[in-house]
Amino acid sequence: MKLRKVEEHVFLFLMRLSALLIGFALLAIIWSIFSKGLGSLNWQMISEVPKGGYYFGKEGGILNAIIGSLYLSLGATVLALVIGLPIALFINIHLSKRRRLVNVVRLILDILWGVPSIVYGAFGFTVMIFFGVKTSLMAGIIVITALILPIMIRSLDEVFKEVPMGLKEASYSLGSTKSETAYKVYVRQCVPGLVTAVLLSLGRGIGDAASVLFTSGYTDNIPTALDQPAATLPLAIFFQLGSPIPEVQNRAYAAAAVLTIIILVISILARIVGNKYQKNKIKA
């Protein structure tokens, strides 16, 4: 009898410890990035592109990487939305009676979600070589789109799944076509969920390094056209960290702090919008 109690207490202790460990891990990550990075972060870092001798510790900043990352991830997010939104609507409106097919499609999407980004990157690189395309903003955008598309569709899908059947039937009975129902009822009903899905995809797009390593190249300039290479923040961190010069390494830490701040802002925004969505949801 007593042993039972002791066992429960031991495990309860272990459970609390595990939860604490997870919290501690997040604190440790944020603390170590910020304590090391914020020190070398200054206005010049985020407002200038690398100047001559930058990679030996001279003047300049990482504006090229910040802008490059924003271009890449925004472009990819827009593209993923344009392709993903119709698919998510298609699954939930046109295929709503064919549950088996929908389940298979969801399985495929979930599996695509699990494909490592390096595989997308390597595949993209091969295709680019095949067609003789050089590393460019466009190639990076396409690969990141492929990477975030499953995320986008599945998050949208989860949102549309919650739309009550009655709403759709009401819309049909008023004579609207399926696409009108899709955009004027479903999308409007789900705007907050849509924003969350977009933010989720955006965060993933900004942070991914392995896929753009091969495809978008790296440059000290801010790209002005789609066929130019583009620098990205994760790669700026990765490359500068590989340098033996301490100043350059410190800049890598500063760049890491910038990226962390961007990701934190996106996470918090997504959370705020998500909470709002919980309040506005119409229950079936």
Binding site: I33, I206, G207, D208, P234, Y253, I263, I266
Partner: peptide, 11 residues
């Protein structure tokens, strides 16, 4: 934690 990019984990 889920949203932190892998390069940050690396750093």
């Amino acid at each position: 934690l889920a949203g932190i990019p892998s390069v940050i984990y690396g750093v």
